[in-house]
Design a protein around this nucleic acid. Structure first.
Lengths: 219, 219
DNA sequence: GTCCACTTTACCCGAACGGGTGATGTGCAG
DNA sequence: CTGCACATCACCCGTTCGGGTAAAGTGGAC
């Protein structure tokens, strides 16, 4: 809800892409579209890292499959040097692994190369406005991964607060003795409680209990 | 790259929203736009759950802040009854908690109410095409959460493949004996290897090793 | 008071674990 | 052949665990 005065701010974009046709196409697109500018186009991450500081852009558009250093490795370094840089990945790959890595490396968006020029420009604008543009397929995968991460429905096995606390101590590497000191009980009490924890969790050893506790996020 | 013959398929959409103005606005928008249809508009999740099966839509557009059952609770149930239903959340809230819950409950997209009608229609289309439309702010939050989830950078402690396999067995609840059978070695060999694993992981017990392995995603 | 549920502690015993040391093999470089 | 690295296994010993049983102490309900 800001006053949208005729936007004078140019979106300065750099391109990192090894295929000459695509690289030049993007550069031309950015140069000829009002409101956009291309501050540099680089054939490799190494080249970009060496030269980009002299014409720092607002947005970097980077391929992943580059000769030499990969785009993902590269943007990690780019982000270290210029933390505020907005980075969009532009890739033909839409596999979970690469999407995940790119995002964790600092990319704020992930577009597939088949994205139309109009969409691309719109997405670049979104990105500088703080959005995180993703191609539909990419967004789906991100959500899918997202769901996989926390599927378990917090089954709590009816553990009492006491038992829970003790379980946490076990998870943190305590043995019966140190855990006993921690909760100010005798070792025998601890042993007694742990028996019940094992029953409730249906396990028969400390390590199995710990594994279950961590995996099912009981801790 | 498919032949885009004049699309005859209507996108049938249902609306769940308690505010009359918004609900009716959405219904009208869907009815009057070529290619779209509104199969029903409901004031509450309870109403939707009761009636939606008679006119099953392709897409459900649901508010979160509803009277009675919340939109998030509701779509969980909706998804159980109709797993293939495409569900888009339409909400004023953009907090992490609700976004997370909505996605995990089965929403395939999350839009803010300030989304323009044109964008909204486009996003609905994206959704039926298998995409996962999100408002820019929402997408940013999703990526932020995403990064928080896997911060630890895969330190692998120089475990050999052998040691790694053994560690996995421990994590899966094996004791020395069963693990030994599993890798066809004597118990003593297993003990020997485990000693080295403990050294490399800097731990002194099975449960601590298991905890570390799971937490640092060595498994 | 009595009864009952719950917490806390105790003891026992066999099995599993942890750590140390040393002895075989097996294959490869010299 | 010798030497060396490495994998495999054995034995020992003290500690910790896992599981079973039993019994005080505590507090509230009746």
């Amino acid at each position: 809800m800001e006053t949208t005065v005729p936007e004078t701010k140019l979106i300065r974009t750099a391109v990192i892409e090894d295929q000459p046709k695509i690289r030049e196409g993007l550069a031309t697109l950015l140069e000829t579209t009002p409101g956009f500018a291309c501050t540099g186009s680089y054939r490799s991450m190494e080249e970009a890292l060496a030269k980009i500081s002299f014409h720092l852009p607002d947005v970097v558009l980077s391929d992943i499959g580059l000769p030499g250093m990969s785009g993902i490795e590269g943007i990690k370094i780019l982000k270290q040097h210029h933390p505020d840089l907005t980075i969009l990945m532009l890739s033909v790959y839409d596999d979970d692994e690469r999407i995940f890595d790119a995002i964790c490396a600092g990319a704020c968006g992930y577009l597939l190369k088949r994205t139309s020029p109009a969409k691309l420009l719109e997405n670049i604008k979104d990105a500088v406005d703080g959005g995180s543009p993703m191609s539909p397929e990419v967004a789906s995968r991100v959500l899918k991964l997202f769901r996989e991460i926390r599927p378990p429905e917090q089954v709590d096995y009816d553990l009492t607060p006491h038992e829970l606390r003790l379980l946490k101590l076990l998870v943190d590497g305590h043995n019966y003795n140190t855990a006993a000191k921690e909760i100010k009980n005798s070792v025998n009490t601890v042993k007694f409680y742990i028996k019940r924890i094992y029953e409730k969790l249906q396990v028969h050893s400390k390590s199995a209990a710990v594994a279950k506790a961590i995996r099912e996020r009981i801790v």
